[in-house]
Write a protein that binds this DNA or RNA. Structure first.
Length: 660
RNA sequence: GGCGGUGUAGCUCAGGUGGUAGAGCAGCGGACUCAUAAGCCGCGGGCCGGGGGUUCGAGACCCUCCACCGCCA
């Protein structure tokens, strides 16, 4: 009986635009699933969509269609992206599936029958615009903390789950199962959260307020709280989407991958729900970090959401998968920058890995008539053994790292072998051996070692970069099924018989021109067409194509520049600072806030002519006092000693807009 | 405000149980030519956030201060 491995992603909100965050979790889950399959486990990999709730109901109403139709229209965005990303999910659940809804009702009924659900009056401050409740503490002077509109006190009869009953049991479980919540920092947060008394959980909404949901079996005037509905997906899917013949059961899940924002929901709500239903808890909840984009938080309003499709189109699925898992340790937050992407693509994928494959296959072609020769053990050296050793143990190393969710370390180990192989080539210099017929045996040994190294590399890469692994196998002339063969069946070093000719093929990761602009994340177009070879003008050939000649001023990197936060600001008021000829005190609107900025522009501008102008300011400059007046930023202006003119933008942009 | 974390080379970060600082990237130099002008070799002296303490000896242990971050309120 194979080991059962059940991995899940959260179910994504169908109304969202799929972005790098969705892709990240799903790719990570895919790697775990693919690795487990190679290990021989019976695998169930589940992802899907959360389709109920207020936002969907509203969006559908706005579009003038019924919510289900709306969901049906949105669903392909996700499914298509998973296909592009080569995601190998075994199940794709939608919370509007009829079976899921039935199971959610079963769960509710079970808890109700056990006396774990009760009805109570809930009173809170309700914001009609946001359609949500706030607590007394949230409300700011009678206004909604979110939209600043007046809130009203509203009472509602709702159903509550006796979550508080399970507080001690949950604390106990977390303490006795250190691996339950990972990484440790998140585990500590949950432990901290549970130090305070746990309340009961409202699990219903009146239909009068929200109708797009699953009806409570014991009260048709209410629907289930969306989180209750959503969390149950992890067990409901198993009952109608999993038809694995080998595994009797996939529950409890091996791992739920979640973003750090929904950790509490999973660690506390979901755990206590399961306890209420007397079902075992998942073995592990792993909360990964968030991505910023070019140093900024991703948000729709900023318009800086990375569209995975655009990246895939430019660099390929595997490069995208590689970057996300290589760049940042899984539990930590990371920054997605085009510069970093380029750097890794160029250095690690094109130069190191791609070129290793390329030069190896070329030599097998040139020096061995497109075949993998037999080695002569007599000619083996210490380095040969080292390469053999590292290669043979690579997969085990990867498994160790992935067991701890250290994707970046696993990929680091793979690149370590790539480097070792490149060193091996330089040290053994097959092109020199090829010139000397007396050393033919040694040449054969070297080429054989390189072929074997590539064979193991491709196997190790399979979970991370399936297309690349397959391409490597094909070029080496391996039979197609070897990339899906189980670890236990995989031919050990030296035991594989190479029967087919090898072929070099085109570059696995063709070098890319670096786009001229660093800011735009969506369209890294292949500019400039003038120079096909980006290094053509460089002398050393190693200098970064980004480096441009300047005067003596030291160059700074994109990271340093990105530390400076520039924003558009509209001048609301301006007045002279007393006793100063050039300082003006400005009150500016920066979108979300108003600030006072003191600027030395009084010789050029009169205060009254500035009001209403939109300018560029440094938003994250440390406040300072100029002639006793606090300045919370700095305006940008042109000119050396004498200020010649303020910076503005050709377009009329709203205050608060980011400038890059 | 409570709890937790972080602060190490220009950048990103490693540095179980204390013994006198490392990697990758960037930069500089070199030899080579199989290869996607790729790769390989050599070159890093940075008050290890500040101050105090324990110790023969602390980046690592203790105290304190500062800065930043997370969770909760």
């Amino acid at each position: 009986m194979p080991n059962a491995f059940y991995v899940t992603t959260p179910i994504y909100y169908v109304n969202d635009v799929p972005h790098i965050g969705h892709a990240y979790t799903t790719i990570a889950a895919d790697v775990l699933a693919r690795l487990a399959r190679l290990r021989g486990d019976a695998v169930f990999f589940l992802t899907g969509l959360d389709e109920h709730g207020q936002k969907v109901q509203q969006a559908a109403a706005k579009a003038g269609i019924d919510p289900q139709t709306h969901c049906d229209q949105l669903m392909p965005k996700f499914k298509d992206l998973w296909e592009k990303l080569n995601i190998s999910q075994d199940g794709f659940i939608r919370t509007t599936d009829a079976q899921h809804q039935t199971i959610v009702q079963h769960c509710l009924q079970t808890l109700y029958d056990k006396g774990l659900i009760y009805q109570a009056e809930y009173t809170g401050w309700y914001c009609t615009f946001d359609e949500r409740f706030w607590t007394e503490k949230d409300v700011l002077e009678g206004l909604c903390p979110d939209c600043r509109r007046p809130v009203e006190q509203v009472s509602e009869r709702n159903y509550f789950f006796r979550m508080s009953q399970f507080q001690d049991q949950l604390k106990e479980h977390i303490h006795t199962h250190p691996e339950f919540i990972q990484p440790d920092s998140r585990r500590n947060e949950v432990i901290g959260f549970l130090q305070k008394p746990l309340g009961d959980l409202s699990i219903s909404r009146p239909k009068s307020r929200l109708s797009w949901g699953i009806e409570l079996p014991f009260d048709r005037d209410c629907v289930a709280y969306v989180w209750f509905d959503a969390l149950v997906n992890y067990i409901s899917a198993l009952e109608y989407l999993s038809a694995h013949p080998d595994a009797p059961t996939f529950w409890p899940a091996s791992v739920h991958l979640v973003g750090k924002d929904i950790l509490t929901t999973h660690a506390v709500y979901w755990s206590t729900m399961l306890m209420g239903m007397e079902r075992p808890l998942p073995q592990c909840l792993f909360a990964h970090g968030w991505w910023t984009v070019e140093g900024e938080k991703m948000s729709k309003s900023r318009g800086n959401v990375v569209d995975p499709s655009a990246m895939i189109e430019e660099f390929g699925t595997d490069a995208f998968r590689y970057f996300l898992l290589r760049e940042v340790p899984f539990g930590q937050d990371g920054n997605f920058s085009l510069a970093a992407f380029h750097s890794r693509y160029q250095a690690e994928l094109a130069n190191d890995l791609g070129n290793l494959v390329s030069r190896t296959l070329a030599m097998l072609g040139n020096f061995s008539q497109h075949t993998v020769p037999h080695p002569d053990p007599q000619t083996e050296t210490e380095f040969d053994h080292q390469l053999q050793q590292t290669t043979s143990t690579l997969f085990g190393t990867i498994e160790e790292h992935l067991h701890r969710f250290e994707f970046h370390r696993a990929l680091e180990a793979i690149m370590g072998l790539v480097q070792l192989a490149n060193q091996y080539i330089d040290k053994t210099a097959p092109w020199i051996l090829a010139k000397d017929p007396a050393r033919a045996a040694r040449l054969q040994t070297v080429l054989f070692h390189l072929a074997e190294t590539l064979r193991f590399l491709s196997y190790a890469l399979t979970p991370f970069m399936p297309h690349t692994a397959e391409a490597m196998n094909r070029r080496l002339g391996l039979t197609a099924d070897i990339s899906t063969s189980l670890l236990s069946n995989y031919p050990p070093w030296g035991t594989y018989t190479y029967n087919n000719p090898v072929s070099k093929g085109t570059a696995l990761f063709p070098k890319k021109d670096i786009p001229a602009t660093q800011g735009s994340q969506t369209t890294p177009t292949s500019s400039p067409p003038a120079s096909k070879n980006p290094q053509a003008l460089g002398s050393s050939g190693k200098s970064s194509p980004l480096a441009i000649p300047t005067d003596d001023t030291p160059q700074i990197g994109i990271d340093e520049f990105m530390k400076v936060q520039l924003k558009m600001a509209k001048i609301l008021e301006a007045e002279r600072v007393p006793k100063s000829s050039k300082l003006l005190k400005l009150q500016v609107d920066m979108g979300t806030q108003q600030r006072q900025i003191v600027a030395g522009i009084g010789k050029k501008y009169a205060p009254e002519e500035l009001v209403g102008k939109t300018i560029v300011v440094v938003a994250n400059l440390k406040p300072a006092k100029l002639m006793g007046v606090e300045s919370q930023g700095m305006v940008l202006a042109a000119g050396e000693k004498d200020m010649l003119g303020l910076l503005g933008v050709a377009e009329d942009l709203p205050p608060g807009t980011t400038v890059k």
